[in-house]
Design a protein around this nucleic acid. Structure first.
Lengths: 235, 235
DNA sequence: AGTAAATTGCGAACACTGATCGCAGTTATG
DNA sequence: CATAACTGCGATCAGTGTTCGCAATTTACT
């Protein structure tokens, strides 16, 4: 695990050791020229890791399990990557490449971005672990760079600064992740446990003076998206 | 760690073992009546954990470190909570209580929600680890319930279904988290490392046929928020 | 050709992590 | 007063990411 602050755990965003360079995977070359030919490759590592995550969740992507699925020793992985985070970067970039970028732009930034977001959400649904990858800033690989380029191209007509445009992309992706989360949760998600949770929450709400929560939980109405007013105000 | 799928790691959202009840912290009572008085309390645990996270990040909140900061044994923590996730729930609920909910509502859902979001963002800035807590669905404690109640009250005039309103709250919080992330990243954030990353990215962009990315990175313009058109279209 | 440098796979270890078990001691209830 | 419940906690387990050193292998530079 990351020993940056002397402790381990989930992917952290701590202060970097100033002594450490901490280069990205994309900065280091995959192979030198000297030694024997490598048996595997970063692409193979990535494919196996993605497969593993698709089947068993992001937590299943441990160095040992990936190594086993690859048929190699655990320590051997570190010949291809220098940390588990590198592997996450590779995985993220790989699935970013699954978003189709050959769709021609229509010219309206909003419409084009919405279409891109929709295709991105599809990728999230296909790779549920993607919503669980902690959002690290600015760790784009080649595919992610293509993605960003496409999004910025879509926003070309908009009179906004570059920084704002990039923040918009990040924002859009956060929204996509959230949408994907709720969609996954309602679909694949354990109706029994869900109902129990909801019931318990509703009960707690009605018991403790939270009438609006109780009402919202009891509301079985399906809102027709077409009749939702644009500005959310009352009728 | 969670042994749900036989593996450990970051806070996962795997399939629950059907044999396991997996009750929330809020469902279990803090203390029984029989034994000797407990030396500490959930509130004390929570306070120490929040303090620890504020200073050293979410990864520093390990059972051992919390126990040490509390002056007790590691295994003793499990008398108050049944998993580390419980502790995260407690922490989240505690800081949710820091959002002021005594601000009177104006009546316009959008305005009121924006104000609430702004106050929520302030809490995120005060507790940077909050953006790192993996968003688990529907694990509200009492404070979170109050928060939800307030938000739903703000949306009372809006003709939307309860489900949609709750999704809106989740969406808003995802947005707040994203805003907090970028804000934290640009403020507290390691100018040297950041500049290096940006430069490296810009170079890669200009080298590999990503003109829009290169242009956006080079753009030092500060967009005046006042003159951004409402619909993002061209001028 | 021959030497030196670089690289590979990997077993073994290290420093962590969350969680469980069992036990002595303490308290309230029947 | 006995029994049941609870506490604190040392020891331990299974799992994690990462490092080190070593034999083997391949390339590059004399």
């Amino acid at each position: 695990m990351r020993h940056e602050a002397g402790e381990a755990g989930c992917r952290t965003r701590e202060v970097d050791d100033l002594a450490q360079e901490h280069v990205t995977v994309w900065a280091r070359p995959e192979r030198g020229t000297r030694g024997p030919a490598a048996v595997h490759s970063r692409a193979e590592l990535t494919a196996v890791a993605v497969e593993l995550a698709d089947r068993s969740g992001l937590a299943a992507v441990s160095t040992r399990q990936v190594a086993r699925a690859l048929g190699t020793g655990q320590a051997s992985l570190y010949r291809y990557i220098s940390s588990r985070d590198d592997l996450l970067d590779l995985m993220t970039d790989a699935v970013a490449g699954e978003v189709g970028l050959d769709v021609p732009l229509g010219g309206d930034p909003v419409e084009d971005l919405v279409a891109l977001a929709s295709r991105t959400k599809a990728v999230h649904l296909r790779h549920p672990w993607l919503s669980d990858v902690p959002p690290e800033p600015l760790r784009l690989g080649p595919r992610g760079l293509d993605y960003l380029e496409y999004a910025l191209r879509a926003m070309e007509p908009a009179p906004l600064s570059g920084r704002i445009k990039m923040e918009i992309v990040a924002l859009m992706n956060a929204l996509v992740a959230q949408f994907a989360r709720t969609e996954l949760q309602t679909s694949r998600g354990n109706a029994s446990r869900q109902a129990a949770q909801t019931a318990h929450l509703g009960e707690a709400a009605s018991r403790g003076g939270h009438p609006h929560v109780a009402a919202a939980m009891a509301d079985r109405t399906e809102t027709d998206p077409a009749q939702v007013p644009r500005d959310l105000s009352s009728r």
